[in-house]
Design a protein around this nucleic acid. Sequence first.
DNA 1: TTTATTTGGTTTATAAAATAAACCGATTTA
DNA 2: TAAATCGGTTTATTTTATAAACCAAATAAA
Lengths: 94, 94
Amino acid sequence: MFKQLDPLLHSELRLAIMSILLSAEEADFVYLKEQTKSTSGNLSVQIDKLSEAGYIEVERGFVGKRTRTVCKITKVGIKAFEEYVESLKEYLNL
Amino acid sequence: MFKQLDPLLHSELRLAIMSILLSAEEADFVYLKEQTKSTSGNLSVQIDKLSEAGYIEVERGFVGKRTRTVCKITKVGIKAFEEYVESLKEYLNL
DNA sequence: TTTATTTGGTTTATAAAATAAACCGATTTA
DNA sequence: TAAATCGGTTTATTTTATAAACCAAATAAA
């Protein structure tokens, strides 16, 4: 009856990150921090986890002299997100 | 933008319990255990948490000589669940 | 009848997760 | 040149989830 909920997505901050990246296709660290109102430490950790899972791609570069970390969602990430939504619907009676 | 997700509901097992109780209006420990495929220990702990939050009511009684723990969802629980669903929709782009 | 075994749980210990605090090098600003 | 800010990362702490161990009562088996 109840499918397992992907533990990587069933986390408030990671879900918010994925949600943003799904609409935006690209977002940098600063933007994600603003939108999610998270601390840098927490954000950094959760970005790493999504990246290690292959759900997002992270590029660390420069804009002018300042560093800039840009995140994009991957195909794998999109699929995982969609499956998570489907599973959740069962729990939510949607 | 992103509302906080009620941490009491944002948990796989507790959400499953609430989901069942929302449709069933009443379910006992054994039934919940079967449906959620959880261990008794985990189920016991999560039932307590929902109960302490006032989201469900727990009655420990007897049927014949055997003990029976029956759970019901409360109005507070229904409201919390509905709010959780609304908040989640934002994250899921629903 | 005593001894397993099962039922219906609870309590306690452990593993994993989320989160914040402390830190760091580079860049501005005062 | 000292102090503050930016853009993070690393490490420590707290919280959660989960399973394992346990328990009393009931039933079944020997």
